[in-house]
Write a protein that binds this DNA or RNA. Structure first.
Lengths: 301, 301
DNA sequence: CTCGAGGTATCAGAAAAAAAGATGACCAGC
DNA sequence: GCTGGTCATCTTTTTTTCTGATACCTCGAG
């Protein structure tokens, strides 16, 4: 009858969700574009809901698609954990890891990874600090912290550290659904410059923002500044302005019919890079080394 | 290279783990026995560990197999949850469910199910009570509790209730690894009667025990009684005696090289049945009804 | 307005994966 | 020994999945 869902379908769907294009997803998992299309169509058929809105330059997750993506991601991660475990029975490591991360990374990226790490190494504790990027860098360089997780694209002279990119996250336009800027289906930076802009000030949002605006010879029309994610979501959802943020911090938002939509931007905006840094020539203690390897592997696909 | 793990393999593996026989697993998922064999061999190859010990009358999970089974079960459950969600967007139910369960059911069976239910219906609270079976029955009959979860095989006149079997769990012999009773690879009740027996007294263990012993015209040689699962595990692992318990409460146990092994028993021992009961002619409030349907579906495979 | 460059959907044939079914080897109990 | 059960192995058949060509859509440039 309705044939069973396969892991392959979930993998392809996740790739599509992450890249925002079936064709790019196909490249990222080394199959043809029609294989992706097929897998997604089968899933949509099986679930009875549309997972993506098809748009001229790619696809965008629907609300149901976003929810299903969370599930799919969880399943794929669980599988990865299941496959990792039987080999290494060295999960009797114990001790503490001194690690520092910047605010948004700690808030949006690390917790699920830490939970998974804990399941594998229950006796390792975290000595965890959240700080600004410069302080994280300094603490890692001087040895106070063994590892740091930061927005690598903000780090200058990253070659001062041992480093590894854990995740790239696309930056998109966020606007209230129905907002006029969404009428032209492929908004450019120039379009966005005309709108009131809400600037997130945590984790050097101002600096990275300035970087891609000035690269394009434009400037945003900043109406509000905030360092609160939730405040920002509320402002955007109610149409007080738009913003550009990475998928990492995107959550569907809705209250009383207000919704936030995310759209790719015509101009080339650099992706956000989250990465791990450590002191270049120090050897890490075993627990920290285990975490380093775990993070690199867990983010590997 | 090493081909990817598929959900099908996990399903077949789980079926094998649950039935203890490839051929029976094959029947339970309506495929041929060689399909099961193949799936398990592929998994073992991919993981690099043996998942089952092959025994003359079936298979038994190895320690690694048991661990992998937990993961597999989790993945399959997660998938089930992922597939359930998109349909019903009525998860805005709220209120409380008055539910009672017996001790072992509450300790070993319900928590993961409740966690999954909560993920779907975050605004439903549990008003949860643990009691002996008779008190659960009485509370359900008089309407104090909406639902009860009990060991159904202990309930007489189950037709007094609306009821549904949620799970059947095989009863096996537990003994310390290396225990002499394990030398004959298919121990019978008569063999077990010769060994010191440890009797678990929670949830009418004595009664259900007596039932299958007397059915076979035998009696166990009871050396200890305890109502503590952990105490029982310790006693068994250290060779103070053996016991017969259901897979539901089995956990691999090891400390200082002591281990517990579980073995099928030659004689026919009735399976443990965990089931849901509710007042026959009352209509359930919406939250309780949602839980009832959820439990029935979640235990459906 | 037309065209080209990007996207996704569809289709038929080729390739790969999985299932079945027959067979063999093994073990326990009679 | 024989018998009835197990799982493993093999070959053939069936099903699923992939590919590659093509159709079709939308956008933006000339």
């Amino acid at each position: 009858m309705t044939s069973d869902v396969t892991l392959r379908q979930l993998r392809y769907f996740a790739a599509a969700a992450e890249t925002g294009q079936f064709s790019m997803a196909a490249a990222s998992v080394f199959v043809s574009q029609s294989a992706i299309t097929n897998a997604v169509l089968l899933l949509e058929d099986r679930l009875g809901v549309k997972l993506f809105d098809r748009r001229p330059h790619g696809v965008a997750l629907t609300a149901e698609g976003h929810s299903f993506y969370q599930h799919a991601r969880h399943i794929l991660d669980s599988l990865q954990d299941a496959l990792r475990e039987p080999r290494f029975r060295i999960n009797d490591l114990h001790g503490a890891i001194r690690i520092a991360a910047t605010y948004s990374v700690l808030g949006y990226f690390l917790p699920p990874l830490f939970a998974r790490f804990r399941a594998n190494y229950p006796d390792i504790d975290f000595d965890l600090h959240d700080r600004g990027r410069r302080k994280v860098e300094a603490a890692v360089l001087c040895g106070e912290m063994e590892l740091g997780v930061v927005i690598l694209s903000n780090v200058d002279h990253r070659e001062r550290f041992g480093h590894h990119v854990l995740m790239r996250s696309r930056r998109q336009l966020w606007a209230a659904s129905g907002h006029p800027v969404l009428e032209q289906p492929y908004p450019s930076l120039a379009d966005i410059a005309r709108q009131p802009y809400i600037l997130l000030t945590i984790d050097e949002g101002e600096e990275s923002n300035r970087r891609y605006w000035t690269d394009n010879g434009l400037a945003p029309n900043v109406a509000f500044r905030t360092n609160g994610m939730e405040a920002l979501r509320g402002l955007v959802a109610h149409g007080f302005g738009v913003t550009i943020l990475s998928d990492m911090v995107y959550r569907p938002w809705s209250l009383e019919g207000k919704k936030i939509e995310a759209r790719p931007i015509l101009d080339a905006i650099p992706h956000l890079e989250v990465g791990l840094i450590w002191a270049k020539d120090a050897t890490l203690a075993a627990p920290a080394e285990a975490l380093r390897q775990f993070l690199i592997q867990a983010c590997g696909n």
